[in-house]
Design a protein around this nucleic acid. Structure first.
Length: 913
RNA sequence: GGGCGGUUAGCUCAGUGGGAGAGCGCCUGCCUUACAAGCAGGAGGACAGAGGUUCAAAUCCUCUACCGCCCACCA
């Protein structure tokens, strides 16, 4: 092998782009539906086409790629299918802003022209995030990239709508929905965010029609009173019972409205009487339905007061609020105001206050879809990790409400519904907005028909005078079919046969209902099976202060910046090591330092190995299972055994989605065991006289490192590939090499126990030397051993112990022999070490050190003794625990005796010092 | 209002019935030919508070406080 000199420090920039390109070119990311190996499939949560990578994505896709690389190395036929979401409102807003720079509005362009612009924008700028995922190292099948507006996908969306409609699961409803006055569209309940906002509670008197006091109501939205059509009280409220059925006069509008009784009213809130505005409040709407009340719209789609608002017509809703309150005050009908925190509903896209508005919208009847979904979650057919999210989802599904799926925007899947104008007369009208936009307004009882391709005429009367609904579908309606639609549904494809149901859904918590639950419902309905077997809900990344990361608040961190500074491997590893099950992450950049240091550690461990094997012909390396037939030393047996433990631990944790633990297991093995001990010991073997021992050490260094790199590869793909390529290896890339499997035959408990004892011995000697201020040079030591086997073990391993503990000239003595006086000492189970003090070192210091140990041992002994004197402990504790306590007591007692006599001895010397 | 998390070393977090741990930071000594992004050694914690269960509690139960999240039609 040619001598290869790696640079002293790892530089991610030298390798990341290079390897990513080679992997992709080699086709390692691609899955083949005809591949006969066990399939493994994940469809990624499609990011918004307008999106760019944030920390949440970085974590989400680090997890994706770890799982995918791991599964691929396990020998499965792995498909990870990427793509983007057309993100209706978000994308439309982005393109409108672009237009605004040219001084244009989308209305000036018109619908078709605008949509052309959106597509142009998408082709040019969309999906930046996918290239950012490549920088992270994501090994996805880019040939299969999908977009929720692709032709095939769009067809699947419309088919879904058509089928639901044909089964009567889609209907048009006239009810109060969430309306965003800025986006000018309806929103579903899940697209609304709730906040509280300091405001007031206004108490208003509605005088009785007979001139008496009437009734007082409390409201947070006085402007809506203009549309009141009743006042409601609780039927059993004694205060108001006599008023039920009477009439009050609605102030400012001066029209009579009834006082009605309804259970919905909470007698303890405000005055116990509530004004009812059926057109502008969902609860009031229901009350109105029950009591046959008129629904008076006083606020329009723009948030302005309508003609129905009388003299307030044309005012903005907030302006009107002020005016109404002033007027009430002048009329003497404003009783008082209280400071009050009002719950506020906001548009999740633009933050504008939602206006509950009465309108005709499209809804999906959810109950029939939810029931099978509840069943598969409850039965465990779909598993949630952590499990508590299953309970939460079931609860949400059990209380599910119908889904408003129509949106009054342009960018999206246009609802495949047509109206015949001849059949409908003026039940179908054009609504001309001041912007110039024309929308179709069809009454709730208008006749409609579904047509996926533009129909030539009305199927009923044959008229060509037909018109398509102007609304588009909720973006989440199209993403709800993502797993099966991306695999080819509604066509019966090979992909669907092989890869559906998919294996894992890796997602953030905030789209559990918005997206995940809906995929389960549509998957069961249309693909006849669950969409995925397991839902893994990963943590949310918070700032160090525990606040949400947000671009607008300036608390976000750019993952690309972190890749630039630390490298992709370090970002991945630093994130994953913080990724505990069910526990949010307060992001700490120190973990990236840790990860970067680790990458460098692995780099240098490999440099060490390469330096030692490059200048000579290493004999043919035996395969891992054959290694144990060689004359192995104790450290050889130990590191092979510890490697098996690490392999087992990594695999087990990955299976359980305990990614942090899996990463930690590799980290600890590589750093604490392989580097800190085995490499150091191997130096002794290599430079020693025994050439066979050195040769075996080199072989083991190679084998163990190779395994460690493969174990680490899913976490740190780039650096492991680069290093693996420099080592002797089989195959063309580490990413298609087999993931390490445990070889039970290499687990060696005896070697582990012995090495534990010896490393403890070495550490104890180092402690003495460091604490006592010995020079770093090797010194003499006297070892008093309790038995022959202990002595033998130390002697057999002296070849490395001496070096690691910096000792020369070791004398063995029996445990009964006299100890030297002027020496520093330490006692372990079965051995006492004495390091003679030269004149330079301070005896007082040793007294101090021994006293400290003594104190520690004494307090511990006290606890143990106390426990062993406790009758009830002896009666109730399991015997192995008692046994262990007894052994511990004996050990501590022995140590105590030695430390005491040691201290006495030193104190005699003290005057000399 | 309902539900779910969390509170352990200066910081970020492991540890879920029997001897308090990691990384970073801090202190001491080392440029030991893999690595100063390193090596060796060390200091540092009444495990949020109160009660209970148990021979034994950071760990199980109850309550309280504080922080965070989700759901909900108290105007």
């Amino acid at each position: 092998m040619p001598k290869v000199l790696l640079p002293k420090a790892y530089n991610p920039k030298d390798v990341e782009a290079k390897w990513y390109e080679r992997w992709e070119r080699a086709g390692y990311f691609y899955a083949d539906a005809d591949d006969k190996r066990t399939p493994y499939c994940i469809t990624i949560p499609p990011p918004n086409v307008t999106g760019s990578l944030h920390m949440g994505h970085a974590l989400n896709h680090t997890i994706h790629d770890i799982v995918v690389r791991w599964q691929r190395m396990l020998g499965k036929n792995v498909l990870c299918l990427p793509g983007t979401d057309h993100a209706g409102i978000a994308t439309q807003v982005v393109v409108e802003k672009e237009l605004a720079k040219e001084g244009k509005t989308r209305h000036q362009l018109g619908r078709d022209e605008f949509l052309k612009r959106v597509w142009e924008w998408k082709e040019q700028y969309g999906g930046v995030i996918l290239s950012q995922l490549r920088k992270l190292g994501c090994s996805y099948d880019w040939r299969r990239e999908r977009f929720t507006m692709d032709d095939n996908y769009a067809k699947a969306v419309l088919m879904t709508f058509a089928q639901l409609a044909s089964e009567g699961l889609i209907y048009r409803g006239h009810r109060v929905i969430n309306w965003c006055p800025r986006c000018l569209t309806a929103l579903s309940d899940l697209e609304v965010e709730h906040e509280t906002h300091p405001s007031k509670l206004w108490f208003i008197r509605y005088p009785a029609s007979d001139g008496s006091y009437g009734i007082a109501v409390a409201t947070t939205r006085p402007e809506t009173m203009l549309g009141d059509t009743a006042v409601a009280v609780h039927p059993s409220d004694e205060r108001y019972k006599h008023l039920i059925g009477s009439t009050v006069i609605l102030p400012l509008m001066w029209r009579p409205i009834p006082i009605i009784a309804d259970d919905r009213v909470d007698p303890s809130f405000g005055t116990g009487a509530v004004k009812v505005t059926p057109a502008h409040d969902a609860t009031d709407f229901e009350i109105g339905e029950r009591h046959g009340l008129d629904k008076v719209m006083v606020i329009d789609e723009f948030g302005r007061m309508t003609e129905q608002a009388g003299k307030f017509a044309g005012m903005d809703r907030y302006e009107c609020r002020k005016a109404v309150v002033e007027e009430l005050d002048r009329e003497g009908l404003l009783i008082r105001t209280e400071e009050y925190e009002v719950p506020l509903a906001l548009c999740y896209r633009c933050g504008t206050a939602i206006e509950p508005l009465l309108s005709v919208q499209w809804f999906v009847h959810m109950k029939p879809l939810a029931e099978p979904a509840i069943e598969v979650i409850r039965s465990g057919k779909i598993k949630y990790v952590p499990e508590r999210f299953a309970r939460m989802t079931i609860e949400w599904l059990e209380n599910i409400r119908d889904w408003c799926i129509s949106r009054q925007i342009w960018w999206g899947h246009r609802i495949p519904v047509w109206y015949c104008r001849d059949c409908n007369g003026d039940r179908v009208r054009e609504w001309h907005l001041p912007t110039g936009e024309v929308r179709i307004r069809a009454d709730v009882d208008a006749e409609w028909f579904v047509a996926i391709e533009p129909p030539g005429c009305c199927p009923k009367c044959g008229s060509k005078n037909i018109i398509q609904d102007s609304d588009v579908l909720d973006t989440w309606f199209s993403s709800a079919i993502w797993p099966h639609a991306t695999l080819g549904w509604p066509d019966r494809t090979r992909e669907l046969d092989v890869f559906y149901p998919t294996d894992l859904m890796i997602t953030a918590r905030d789209i559990l209902y918005l997206w995940v639950a809906r995929m389960i419902m549509t998957g069961l309905k249309f693909a006849n099976d669950i969409p995925f077997r397991t839902v893994y809900v990963h943590p949310t990344i918070l700032t160090r202060e525990g606040k949400r990361m947000s671009k607008s608040l300036g608390t976000g961190i750019d993952p690309l910046d972190l890749i630039e500074r630390y490298g992709a491997d370090a970002l991945r590893f630093g994130l994953i090591i913080q990724c505990e099950l069910g526990q949010d992450i307060r992001f700490s950049e120190e973990r990236l330092d840790m990860a970067r240091d680790f990458a460098n550690k692995v780099w240098n461990a490999t440099r060490f190995v390469l330096m030692n094997i490059s200048d000579e012909a290493l004999p043919q390396l035996p395969a891992m299972p054959e290694l144990k037939r060689l004359p192995l030393t104790l450290p050889d047996r130990w590191i092979l055994s510890r490697l098996q433990r690490a392999i087992s631990s990594v695999n087990r944790h990955l299976e359980e989605c305990e990614f942090d633990r899996a990463a930690k297991a590799v980290y600890d093995f590589v750093w604490d065991e392989f580097c800190d001990w085995y490499i150091e010991i191997s130096k002794c073997a290599i430079s020693g006289a025994d050439s066979e021992r050195g040769m075996i050490a080199k072989a083991i260094l190679c084998k163990v490192l190779d395994c460690a790199l493969r174990l680490l590869h899913p976490f740190m793909p780039f650096v492991t590939e680069e290093l693996w390529q420099h080592l002797p290896h089989e195959g063309e890339s580490i990413m298609v090499s087999p993931f390490p499997k445990v070889d039970e035959g290499l687990i060696d408990v005896e070697a582990e126990v012995k090495m534990d004892w010896l490393t403890e011995l070495v550490s104890a000697i180092r402690n003495i030397k460091s604490e006592m201020g010995f020079p770093r040079t090797p010194c003499d030591a006297l070892l008093f051993v309790s038995d022959e086997s202990a002595k033998q073990l130390i002697e057999d391993n002296l070849w490395w112990i001496a070096s690691l503990a910096q000792l020369k000239g070791i004398e063995f003595h029996g445990i009964e022999e006299a100890r030297p006086k002027l020496a520093a000492s330490i006692a372990l189970r079965g051995v006492e070490v004495y390091v003679p003090l030269s004149g330079v070192v301070d005896v007082n210091k040793e007294v101090e050190r021994v006293s400290k140990q003594l104190a520690k041992v004494m307090s511990e002994l006290e606890r143990v003794t106390h426990r062993l004197q406790n009758e009830r402990f002896l009666q109730n504790a399991p015997s192995d625990v008692i046994e262990a306590e007894r052994a511990r007591e004996a050990n501590l007692r022995e140590q105590l005796e030695r430390l005491k006599s040691r201290l006495d001895m030193l104190k005699e010397l003290q005057p000399l010092a």
